[in-house]
Amino acid sequence: MKNRYFFIIIVLFFFFFIVLFKGLKNPNVYIPELQKEKNLSRFDASDFYSNTKTSSLDILNDNNFYLINIWASWCLPCREEHDYLIKLKEQNLIKLIGINYKDNFKNAKKFLNEMGNPYSKILKDKNGTVSIQLGAYGVPETFIIDKNKKIIKKIIGPIDKKIYNEILLIIK
């Protein structure tokens, strides 16, 4: 009887050790990555230039791939990824929609003038609520939406060469 208890405790003991040992290697910061494809939930926002209210249903109306990119002029990584966005636009395979996150209108316009404007439509997100509807938590963040209006890819952080190629593979 006693030996059996001891045995059980020893097994538990090593189980605990292994789990904690593995747990040490996991990062302890949570990143809300896309677990599986999901439907794009409807969101409302006002237009960057005209300030008129529109809804996601009106904007994503074509049978097309869409890329929703959250950006801000004060965000440095956004500048890094901007060239890739322009290149993507030049492919003419995907429509780019920008969401201007917690930004100043003047600075944002200056940013577009300097770096070019890859977006076919820009929405304003003054208080950060629009991006939360999408499931983003910072800038830059990018969502790829397929023809069935499903989010198939979520990119947290700037787009780099590798991710750019991945996107090309998806939309071709």
Binding site: K102, N127, G128, T129, S131, I132, Q133, Y137, G138
Partner: peptide, 10 residues
Amino acid sequence: SDFAESMKLV
């Protein structure tokens, strides 16, 4: 944080 404020708004 800013983000928490936005979440509260939502």
